[in-house]
Write a protein that binds this DNA or RNA. Structure first.
Lengths: 254, 254
DNA sequence: CCCAATTTGTTCGTATGTATC
DNA sequence: AGATACATACGAACAAATTGG
C-alpha cells in the first residue's frame, strides 16, 4: 500500500495515520451531510471501520476536537458529535496564526477604518431598542474618567467591547467575525503593550462623544450619518493610539 | 483533586486531560518565548514532567499539531518543534467555522467592496516589476474566451487567483490574510454552486478589462486610480455574479 | 549498503471514570 | 442503588522513520 499523501500548494506531505483518519472522518461527515449535534460512530465502530487501534482513533478524535469540529461526551448516549464551532473558538484558532506575525496599530486601523463605517451603515435602522440599550449599557461603564491605571485598562477594554458588540449585531457573518476578531486583537495588543498606561484623557473624551453620536444615528436609522461618525471615530482613535504608542516607546527608551 | 476548569464567557467547562496538557504546554512555550523551530521536550520527558501516560501526552501533541502550533519528526534529532502556521492552514481552519454558516454572495462582496480598493491603493507604486509580471501572467491564462465549461471554471478560479496574488503582496498581514481568505471562500462557493456554468461573457470581458487597467495604475503608482478601478471592478462583479446566481436558481427551479 | 542508535508512531489488554436508566 | 454504555487513561511491548557511522 503506497503512503497516503495529499497535494498541497508545493510539495507532497506525508500524513500520519491519526491525521489520515481525522481527514477520512471529516470527509465522511460532509458526504453524509451531518449537522451539528449528529452522532458519529462510537469508538469500537471506528476501530472496526478503519481497522486501527483505539489509540489511533482517539488521536484522530482529538484532532477533530482541537479544530472545533466535534465534541465528545462520556456515558450512555454519549459518543462523538458534530459540533458547530463557536466564534470565540474560531477567533482563538486564528490568533495562533498571528502570534508570530506581529501586527502593528497601523495594520489594524487600516482594516477598522474601512470596515467599521461600512458595518454601522448597514446596521442603522435595523437594531432593536434592546440592542441599542445594550450598547448604551456598555458606554455607561466608562461614563466617568478612570481613577486608577487598573480602571483605565478596564475602560479601554470596555470601549473596544462596544465595537465587538456592534460586530455581533451584523447579519453578515463574515463582517461580524472579522470585526470581532480585529477588535479582540487590538484589545490584546493594548493590554500586552500597556497602551492604556499614560491615561489619555482626549482619547477617552472624544471616543465617548463619537460613540454617543453613533448610537443616536443608529437609532434614527441615519445610515450616512452613522458611517461618517464612525469614520471620524476611527481616524481620531488611530492618531491618538499611535501617539500613545510613540509615548510608550519614548518612556521605554529613556 | 478538584476537576480542572477554565472560566470562559459564561459557564465553566471541564477540560479533558489531554486538553489540559496541551494548554499547559502552550503556556510553557509562551513563557519560554520559544520561536519557530525550537524543540519541545521529548515524549519521555513530558511523561515525567506531567506524570501522565504516553497516550495522554501524545493526544496533547496531536491537539497542538491540529491547531498548527507544532510539528513532529521521528528519528534522531527528531521530536516536537514549535511551528509557524502557514496561511493555507490558517485559512483551512477558519473555513471550518464558516462551514455551518452559509455565506451569501452579498456577504462576501460587502467585504470585498471596501477592502480590495483599499488594498490596491496601498499597493500602488510599491510592487516590483517581477510582481507586476506575475499578475500579468495570471491574466494571460484567461486572455481568450473559454471553449468548454471545464475551461470556464478554471478561468473563473484563475481570475480569483489574481486577487489572491494581490492579497499576498500586501505588507499588512491582516489585510493580506482577510482578502486571501475571502477570495478563496468565493472561489469555493463558485465551484460548489457551479456559478460558472452558464458562461457569462460580459463578466469575463469586463473583469479582464478592469484588471488590465488596474495593473497599469499599479505600475504607474497611481493610488487613487487603482482604488477607483478596483471599486468599479468589484461593483460590476457583484452585480454580474448576483445575476448569475439568480440564473442558476431559475434554471434549478424550472 | 547496512547497521545501530534515537525518537516518534502504533497496538492491545486492562482498568477507571462518568452519565443514563 | 445498581446495571449498562460509553469515553478516558495507563503500561508494556513492538513498529516505523530518520540520522550517522
Amino acid at each position: 500500500m503506497p503512503p497516503a499523501t495529499i497535494r498541497s500548494t508545493a510539495k507532497t506531505v506525508r500524513l500520519s495515520r491519526p491525521e489520515q483518519v481525522a481527514e477520512a472522518i471529516k470527509e465522511w461527515v460532509m458526504e453524509q451531510g451531518l449537522h451539528s449535534g449528529d452522532r458519529l460512530p462510537s469508538e469500537p465502530e471506528m476501530i472496526e471501520r478503519f481497522g486501527m487501534s483505539k489509540g489511533t482513533i482517539r488521536e484522530a478524535t482529538r484532532i477533530l476536537e482541537a479544530q472545533g469540529l466535534v465534541r465528545t461526551r462520556t456515558g450512555p448516549g454519549g459518543g462523538t458529535f458534530v459540533h458547530q464551532m463557536s466564534p470565540e473558538r474560531a477567533r482563538a484558532l486564528l490568533s495562533n496564526y498571528f502570534y508570530f506575525r506581529d501586527l502593528t496599530l497601523k495594520d489594524i486601523y487600516q482594516i477598522r477604518m474601512v470596515l467599521e463605517p461600512e458595518l454601522v451603515a448597514s446596521l442603522a435602522g435595523t437594531l432593536s431598542e434592546d440592542e441599542l440599550s445594550r450598547l448604551e449599557a456598555v458606554m455607561a461603564t466608562y461614563a466617568h474618567p478612570a481613577a486608577t491605571a487598573e480602571e483605565e485598562r478596564e475602560q479601554h477594554i470596555a470601549s473596544l467591547r462596544f465595537h465587538g458588540l456592534l460586530a455581533e449585531m451584523s447579519d453578515n457573518p463574515l463582517m461580524g467575525f472579522i470585526i470581532a476578531f480585529v477588535t479582540q486583537t487590538l484589545s490584546d495588543l493594548t493590554v500586552y503593550r500597556k497602551l492604556y498606561d499614560p491615561p489619555n484623557h482626549e482619547l477617552w473624551a472624544r471616543g465617548k462623544a463619537y460613540q454617543a453620536r453613533l448610537v443616536e444615528a443608529l437609532r434614527a436609522g441615519d445610515s450616512a450619518q452613522a458611517r461618517d461618525v464612525m469614520s471620524l471615530h476611527m481616524a481620531t482613535a488611530q492618531s491618538l493610539m499611535q501617539a500613545q504608542e510613540a509615548e510608550v516607546i519614548r518612556r521605554f527608551m529613556t
